[in-house]
């Protein structure tokens, strides 16, 4: 049974798609956070500019990092709940014998 699962196209594409999504989102998260940190280190003036009354650029950017962080996990969970779980149950039914 093991070999049948491992050699099946379905399982291979499942692993590939999941790893791709995880990798892309991880890189996106690293980019967002370390981008923010490096912006702070190298261009404080930009973040300190006022855009609306007393509100500086840094405030929506900082809050934005928090919201984006949450959105990225949301994208991952939505994809997994919809696509990934469906593929898993297909594989289970076809190859494991519908445990």
């Amino acid at each position: 049974m093991k070999d049948r699962i491992l050699n099946s196209q379905e399982f291979k594409s499942l692993v590939r798609s999941k790893n791709t999504i995880s990798l892309i989102l991880t890189v996106a998260q690293l980019f967002i956070y370390f981008g923010f940190i490096l912006l702070l280190a190298y261009n404080k003036e930009f973040l300190g500019q006022k855009i609306y009354g007393p509100v500086t650029v840094g405030i929506p950017v900082g809050i934005g990092v928090i919201i984006l962080t949450w959105l990225l996990t949301g994208i991952y969970v939505a994809w997994s709940n919809k696509k990934y779980d469906q593929k898993v149950s297909e594989i289970r039914e076809k190859l494991v014998g519908g445990e």
Partner: peptide, 17 residues
Amino acid sequence: LIYAVGFLVGWPIVTFL
């Protein structure tokens, strides 16, 4: 705020990997 953001950004890593 910068400090607080740092404590949140690890959670996606937990989720994805």
